[in-house]
Write a protein that binds this DNA or RNA. Structure first.
Lengths: 252, 252
DNA sequence: CGCGCAATTGACTGCCCTCAAAAAGCGTGG
DNA sequence: CCACGCTTTTTGAGGGCAGTCAATTGCGCG
């Protein structure tokens, strides 16, 4: 059936808008429109810009670019990283569907990190100035936006704790447990997932080397904590992994 | 002259309000009211709660407490820290006058860290819900609040870079350079200041031990980078220290 | 002066990094 | 299908940076 034919049957619904609308998005319960009623969600829809496909390994934005949009991830995974003055790279986060990219750029009005898709992905462009205009009339939206920024702050504090106090084994366990809980929140099997990032990227994020990550994977496998096949992970003993992440247990 | 006598001479000015007002505060160009006109600043003043004195080493708020207020530091210094599940402490930041405490609590509606005064300090209590009500009518205030939250995100990203990629010497240089720039922004001599925190606290923040900090201080002193007397610091070679922080130079 | 705490210094250890080589994936093209 | 080259990952051996442990020194304060 052609699109125009469908439009005749359902004259009040525009297919393009349906595709583009927050209410039709599977992530709206986690994303910016969380908790909004239908009318508010429509207003938000109206300011949201293009829906962009970002192919694997391509750039969403680059550090020092002027900031105009936030990006809500509809589909896929990203990494964000910073370059130090002497050229060293630090991955500051891995983001997945329902999460917001670019909040760190509001303060300086230019991006402070690069964002790269780890797989073929899709984002919604959210023009920031228009979003701020909406806030005046939509306290619920504003409140949830503040929650999301605040959660980004606490997420980073958790990483500081990880990098500042934990040994390699604990860091890696915490990393896996964190992924599991985020997949659970999205309705995916928490203990079976594909790593979207390379060993090198994991190591960089955790302040370790690729060799350390590889050794940890082997150790966890040997101790019956994980099944590992390339990037496919199965957490065989989540309880023990959580205990390791909490620092109350250690493997051999 | 008595206060009431003064009030007769200047009947339109209330001394208490003067003391309590943002416009009279030396930090208003850095703090929440940055960029506000007189009328808006007055509205903000009206919602600001008590001005509280926080004695040295005492607690402003504690992790898991319900979140009701943000705190603007009027005077003094604080540290914030998190406890890991197994009891390890990680200092997530040192805050000084003009900076905001508690933004990490918005997301979960309870505090996520402890905040302790490093010296006798003063804060302004900002009831968060009333602040959000103001945002609807004061876009400038809202915008600057977002800038402050965003800057907190980038500050933490910088710490992640530090903890993830830098060697001890570079971390410590970066720490000192950061303090210098923040004192400069406040109109203080950037290269002469008192450390408000112990060696142990510095080490904790930087993911190092107290012994390492002590050794670094000795090394920097020996190489003519610093003059050190207890907690009194003089940066003798800021250029070189900045180069070390950037990772383009190293000391012996 | 003497006590207690904070900071310094030294000797040694160990975790993780570095360097290196082998193995495993993976896409391409014959 | 396999051969080939390239990249990623694994595994091993050895070294170094910062941690640990311990003793000493310095400083503030009653």
């Amino acid at each position: 059936m052609s699109e125009s034919g469908l439009n005749k049957l359902l004259p009040s619904i525009n297919i393009d808008q349906l595709r583009a609308s927050c209410s039709a998005c599977t992530m709206h319960h986690l994303c910016l429109p969380m908790g909004l009623g239908e009318p508010d969600m429509k207003k938000l829809d109206q300011i949201i810009g293009r829906r962009r496909k970002i192919p694997k390994h391509s750039l969403l934005f680059r550090s020092d670019e002027p900031f105009t949009n936030l990006y809500a991830i509809r589909l896929g995974h990203f990494k964000t990283f910073q370059l130090s003055p002497n050229g060293e790279e630090q991955i500051t986060g891995f983001q997945m569907a329902g999460e917001l990219l670019g909040m760190d750029a509001i303060g300086s009005e230019q991006h402070r990190c690069d964002a790269i898709a780890l797989e073929d992905s899709e984002v919604c462009e959210i023009p920031y100035l228009r979003l701020e205009e909406l806030f005046g009339h939509m306290p619920t939206l504003l409140h949830h936006f503040h929650r999301m920024m605040s959660q980004e702050i606490t997420r980073e504090q958790d990483v500081m704790l990880l990098l500042g106090t934990m040994r390699a084994e604990q860091r890696f366990a915490a990393f896996l447990v964190n992924l599991a809980s985020r997949y659970a929140a999205r309705g995916y099997a928490p203990y079976n997932f594909q790593l979207r990032m390379s060993r090198e990227e994991i190591g960089n994020y955790l302040g370790l080397t690729i060799e350390s990550i590889s050794r940890l994977l082997s150790r966890f496998k040997k101790n019956g904590l994980l099944r590992v096949a390339n990037r496919e992970i199965e957490m065989l003993d989540p309880v023990r992994l959580k205990a390791m992440a909490a620092g109350t247990e250690s493997c051999d």
